[in-house]
Design a binder for these strands. Sequence first.
DNA 1: GATGCAACTACGCAATTACGTGGTATTATA
DNA 2: TATAATACCACGTAATTGCGTAGTTGCATC
Lengths: 221, 221
Amino acid sequence: MDTADKDNAPAKELNVWIVEDHPSYRKSMVFLLNSMDGFNCEKDFEDVESALDELKEGKPDIILCDIDLPGMNGVAGVAAFKAVYDDIFVIMLTVHDEEEYIFNAICAGADGYLLKSTSEEELNRSIMEVVNGGAPINPRIAHKVLKMFSTFAPKQDDYDLTEREQEVLKLITNGKTKKHVAAELFLSFHTVDYHLRNIYKKLQVNSRTEAVAKALRERII
Amino acid sequence: MDTADKDNAPAKELNVWIVEDHPSYRKSMVFLLNSMDGFNCEKDFEDVESALDELKEGKPDIILCDIDLPGMNGVAGVAAFKAVYDDIFVIMLTVHDEEEYIFNAICAGADGYLLKSTSEEELNRSIMEVVNGGAPINPRIAHKVLKMFSTFAPKQDDYDLTEREQEVLKLITNGKTKKHVAAELFLSFHTVDYHLRNIYKKLQVNSRTEAVAKALRERII
DNA sequence: GATGCAACTACGCAATTACGTGGTATTATA
DNA sequence: TATAATACCACGTAATTGCGTAGTTGCATC
């Protein structure tokens, strides 16, 4: 076998499949890929189901997959492909830049997310990035991802917990009882109790359940 | 005029500032930027503080900012810059690809996240992407962002909790006692107790703290 | 030297929890 | 008709929790 070093092993072509229901766009993608150095598009499909079928016979390195498809959609497709071969790279290639789609595709395990307006040069680069462990994302989409990310995200208010209190909270959050925490931190039960009371006061709660919930939801620990 | 892309305002140069403590790297960045068509790097700083100072006099279009800096770090810097002018674009330019840094930078409002190994051509493209509302992210970092993102994702494994159990778990997670849950769901204390036991069994835990932690961490509820 | 603060220890008690064990009613599926 | 699954109710007990109260120690600031 030829050892694929770094980026440019000359011999080994990357095998790319395309799943796309619009015949003309699909054809042009196939043509484009085959005309690009280092890529080989030997199979193309109009739906996820037939691609899955063909996956029984053999696997590509990469699947470029549309989202809007008849039957199973592309997002479900990603999960399905990865269920068969978990080392297949799947890049979403779509016109959708709605948060809903992006979010779902990412969660389904897509390795990249490109818009159909992607240039040949960018497509080429993106595929190489995926193969090298990166995740090419169209910047416009990346922007949305970042925005989504920061809304999920926590404003990091640590409620002025002291280091000790954070230690205790962490262990409590991991399900330990006060007794266990005491043993683990070489403290007396009463000391842990003392810290926990202060934690409650600072977080403005009055049960360990609320404290744990707050700590996890706001990523305090 | 040169290449006419869509948003090509005639000959308006983009003013870029650099915040970077390593003198040699900073100098070479300045030189690089000034040699690139369409960019103008008129000011460079060795720390966030002096950049903030200068921001009182005038603003750039874009700030390229390191993370590891003496004094205020780059992540705090992003927030500080945006607090002065919220339309400044800030791109993190760093060697760090640890999740911690990425996460914090994104949450602080960074518009892009590039590694210092970024090529001239890529830097050029990235700046243009930012100005056009995109978010250039190094693919290796994007990969981590996606991975982080999918941990936020709705868990597939809901541990086969019944609807009732989910109701109970939700209330418990919100800090209610069994007594309260019973009152809220018009059940007896014992019934809530019963459901909770089943929840523990299904989640394979044996305390409400662990159950809450698992529920929140895996987004079951 | 006084003051404050974080960290630590301690006792007691009511409330709550975890869990073993005993039931019943309804509904869907074999 | 049997049986499993879900939801429901109940008793008792040991363990744990939440919290009022009352101390000591070390260290830094004033």
